[in-house]
Design a protein around this nucleic acid. Structure first.
Lengths: 336, 336
DNA sequence: ATGAAAGCGCTAACAA
DNA sequence: TTGTTAGCGCTTTCAT
């Protein structure tokens, strides 16, 4: 059990003061070239690593960012298990964080109180909210002095914070347009969850496409949650309807719909075409592969981390608002 | 920007010493009931939260555990994107960690050096290695004084650390047995990656089943990596072979195989039956649903966290070795 | 350019 | 039982 080497050890070894070592470590131009070299030498020889707890304490900066995710019945499990969206996003964060000498903490949070405590306890430098912002949470958050980044938030208060979103409305439009071009006139829309502002945007775009094509909405259903299972239930209903196409605002729901349809003997896309939204990895595993509106989730995650770190570093006055593009991906499930 | 409240503020507010506050916070039975109450009162009124950086510094304990994952070309992206196994595992960790007042850090690591530095910098209390242990890493690690938990490691050095694995061999056996029972005699085995000790176990079990049934292995292929894409390639080869069943030691590979087979006009399971291993969430999204050997990954993750935290707390002499059960799940892809 | 020392918030040994 | 205080490892001001 080797004892850990501290800044003092390095100082002693190099025959300089701890201050000088600190200067070198932090790249502060206050030391002579010679001192610098001796310190670096000593650091290498001793294998010195600054203790972040100490740094955190004295700089009041932890080099850690928090990622808050929605909890379902007290656990992240369902969300992680079902929805690769989150893990892809996380991998983007991880990549950028690591490159910048940051670490990140993930937590599921129910109450605003917990969240505040968590931030205080861990001295987080910034925080990313992913897909969920309890009503009152944002009020409490404003009081906090750390940068906050909201992902996919359309609530009116979102503008007080930094935000990153995608072109949800355009995505909806693209999906609708695509289905019209394929000649469909009886199309069902399936919302991926109740009261979702994100879904609302996608729907607006979709409606715009229908309007342009002079087509009336044939059927409007809403999945309770954005899950395969809920999609399956919807699919059961759809199988006995007369629609020839369905656009679900989430791949997971679309996948569930497709499976239900197939289990009931319907052919996709010939009997019913299906289009989803997100382009999850799994969406090209199925037969037929799912047509969808793609967003680049890894990039969204990495950009989120980069943006947050930039804000932490530069402390700009204004809040940043970024919108990422989407892209229609036509695969088998709608390609008649 | 509210100033953060420290232990001193609480002490002042309650009219006691910082030591007393500390005792109360840490549940050390050294204070009178009355003092305790006054302190708790003060804490509540001020909304005090201990600063973990300070705690970490003085206790030399961070209440953080590290999770090390394999990096593919410098990023976790492919692994997270493709393989929900990892995210499910993580969600198990998150659940237990949060319940126990721990946080966890995730990193992808290439070199042992980096890993050691990371642990030192962050003062991690313990560490979980998930699916990867670079050759020499374990040597370096032994020098570390923190508990180390290896997941799915069969390398000989694994016994020096705590380990959690599943009944891989039995899983292979179950799969083989199942296929035999369905009357198959020409079965292909597909290893989920090259030189994988885990795969080797599964294969041994599988072979045992064949041996018992007096059936010779018809075909043995190896996927380069455990991915859908690699599975697809294998599936293309299989489509022109004369096997009637295939057991792939990973769902991802099995899914790829199935898709390739279907794309080539083969019917699953009537032309060829397919069985995988893991029971990923996506494995029941497909048509047909994939038969597989299930492991409970969330549980594996939560048990990992719990085990590690226990070890951190109790510092037992011996290393713990846990084997989790598996279960055959017969779905459509092998149900003839 | 260099170093001494105060302080970051908390714990725990020691005194009272 | 309670309080005082010396660290924990590092940063940073202020002398030198």
């Amino acid at each position: 059990m080797k004892k850990k080497v501290t800044i003092r050890d390095v100082a002693k070894h190099a025959g300089v003061s701890v201050a000088s070592v600190s200067y070198v470590v932090n790249g502060i131009q206050k030391v002579s070239e010679e001192t610098k070299e001796r310190v670096q030498q000593a650091i290498a020889e001793l294998g010195y690593q600054p203790n972040f707890a100490a740094v955190s304490l004295s700089k009041n900066r932890s080099y850690m960012i928090g990622v808050v995710m929605p909890l379902i019945e007290d656990t992240l499990a369902p969300i992680f298990k079902e929805n690769s969206y989150y893990s892809e996003f996380i991998s983007g964060i991880e990549y950028v964080a690591r490159k910048n000498g940051y670490d990140f903490l993930i937590t599921g949070v129910n109450k605003a109180e917990e969240c505040k405590n968590w931030i205080a306890k861990r001295n987080l430098d910034g925080i990313i909210f992913l897909g969920m912002f309890p009503e009152h949470l944002h009020e409490e958050m404003k009081a906090l002095s750390i940068p906050i980044l909201l992902i996919d938030a359309y609530e009116e208060y979102a503008d007080h914070f930094h935000t990153i979103r995608i072109a949800d409305e355009e995505g909806g439009f693209l999906a609708g347009q695509h289905l019209l071009q394929k000649g469909h006139t009886k199309i069902a829309y399936v919302a991926h969850s109740e009261n979702s502002p994100v879904d609302a945007r996608r729907y607006i775009g979709y409606q715009r496409a229908l309007y342009r094509g002079n087509v009336k909405e044939a059927l409007h259903l809403t999945a309770k949650y954005s899950t395969f299972k809920e999609g399956y239930k919807i699919g059961e209903k759809l199988s006995s309807s007369d629609v020839t196409a369905v656009f679900a605002s989430s791949d997971l729901v679309a996948l569930g719909i497709m499976k239900a349809l197939q289990d009931r003997g319907k052919k996709v896309p010939t009997d019913i075409a299906v289009v989803g939204f997100d382009d999850l990895t799994v969406s090209s595993y199925t037969s037929p592969e799912l047509s969808t509106v793609r967003q680049d989730v890894f990039h969204k995650g990495s950009l989120s981390a980069q943006t947050l770190i930039d804000v932490i570093t530069d402390r700009p006055q204004e809040t940043k608002h970024i919108e990422l593009p989407v892209e229609l991906v036509v695969r088998e499930s709608s390609n008649t």
